[in-house]
Design a protein around this nucleic acid. Structure first.
Lengths: 231, 231
DNA sequence: TCAAAAGTGTTATCGCTACACCCATGC
DNA sequence: GCATGGGTGTAGCGATAACACTTTTGA
């Protein structure tokens, strides 16, 4: 800390939290965005964000901001990067801590209260964003893609019960390429983190597809061992 | 940003940069630490750190802090995580942005000016550290281990010319296990990012080992393609 | 009976791992 | 000539990727 007694002579800055909130519905990966209602960029779209309070843990702030904007808590959320250019926000010096979050549609259909014009946009049709938010989104999306090829975090984006074709379609939506359903389902099954139910879903086919749910305990046992796979 | 005009009503906090600086000498991975000279933890060891100025880019601050403490610039440095618990520093509210840096011994032997009792510690013999710095170090070390199994960043820790046995020994020091020299050298050679020199180094053997240097251009071409390998 | 999606196994290839001997040199 | 570390090739195995047909059922 160089050669000072305490921090009185050092600057303070605003610390923002910006969240790239991913959701999955209509067979597309979507991102929740909000329309700014204050200067200098009224009406433009931005990531969901907020400012850290002095008496608030950083992780608590990210949960608070997510809850305020979506009504959800206990959401999968992970820090990705920090953005700290001096003039990245023209209003003030703001260092932004960027997270991404994964939300599943059942939860948000029931509980989500979109505030201040929050709206879902498909990942391939994102409007112009303020500041460096496009860079943030790109980085978060890259992180999600990289991560999902190594760990089965996709479940966070699906409802509690889902079918194998849905899971595969989700992976295709995220990785933006088609995947071999035999190989992928084999790989997922081999992890033994799914519980098969004796129900079928008939939304998309006459034959119907079996429903599965995600066994969080087995999953956590795996990740503790540092288990990885690759698509 | 919730529903405010500007940021006047929001808190500001100190933003610190803390660097886990890795070096490699005496066949061991080492970490540069510093002895605090101010309250409340005078005499205890800490990571190299400093406070962000209001008119300074975050990345510039990390470079400044590294240069101030080691005399080096143009160093490989990467953000890992942010630590933001309210009371992590008992003196003040400080959000800390943690980086790790890789330094090679030729550079620091020539230029390093250890300040304020900065000292290298072998990774397996780290003293008690202040605040959450042990957690930071653990996370940085884990990140380094994970990263080096996928990308050949090890060169950053070696002098410009190095031998294959040195490179292998470095990997063993980082991953803390012995590796098959045939398989590892094969893998490195297959990347074609090394230039072989017509000189040998006789430090450690009578036969002598060929010197190589790292072809940064070819390496960057690879990483742009997102190339990965695994040890 | 046809259309549309679900479900399921096998084979070939590739990459990784494991493993041991000769080489060059200084002493 | 011997001790020391440097340098190199191969074979077996496991994992991945490629690939197509049968099942179910509603219309």
């Amino acid at each position: 800390m160089e050669t000072k007694k305490g921090y009185e002579n050092y600057d303070k800055v605003h610390v923002a939290i910006d969240c790239v909130i991913f959701g999955y519905y209509e067979r597309q990966l979507q991102v929740l965005l909000i329309q700014r209602d204050f200067e200098p960029v009224v009406g433009e779209w931005s990531l969901i964000g907020g400012i850290l309070s002095e008496d608030e843990d950083l992780d608590a702030a990210s949960q608070r901001i997510l809850k305020y904007n979506t009504g959800l808590d206990n959401v999968f959320m992970e820090h990705v990067h920090v953005f700290g250019k001096v003039h990245r926000d023209p209003l003030a010096r703001v260092v932004s801590v960027m997270y991404y979050a994964l939300i599943n549609p059942i939860d948000y259909n029931h509980k989500l209260i979109p505030r201040m014009g929050a709206k879902w946009f498909p990942i391939n049709n994102i409007p112009k964003l303020i500041f460096d938010h496009e860079e943030m989104l790109k980085m978060a999306f890259d992180t999600l893609k990289k991560k999902i090829t190594r760990m089965p975090i996709g479940f966070e984006l699906l409802p509690p019960k889902f079918t194998m074709p849905e899971l595969i379609q989700l992976y295709e939506a995220i990785l933006q390429k088609s995947l071999d359903k035999r190989n992928l389902s084999k790989k997922i099954f081999s992890l033994k983190i799914l519980r098969k139910h004796n129900e079928k879903q008939f939304n998309t086919s006459k034959k119907g597809a079996f429903l599965y749910s995600f066994d969080k305990r087995k999953y956590e046992a795996l990740t503790k061992k540092g288990f990885l796979f690759e698509i």
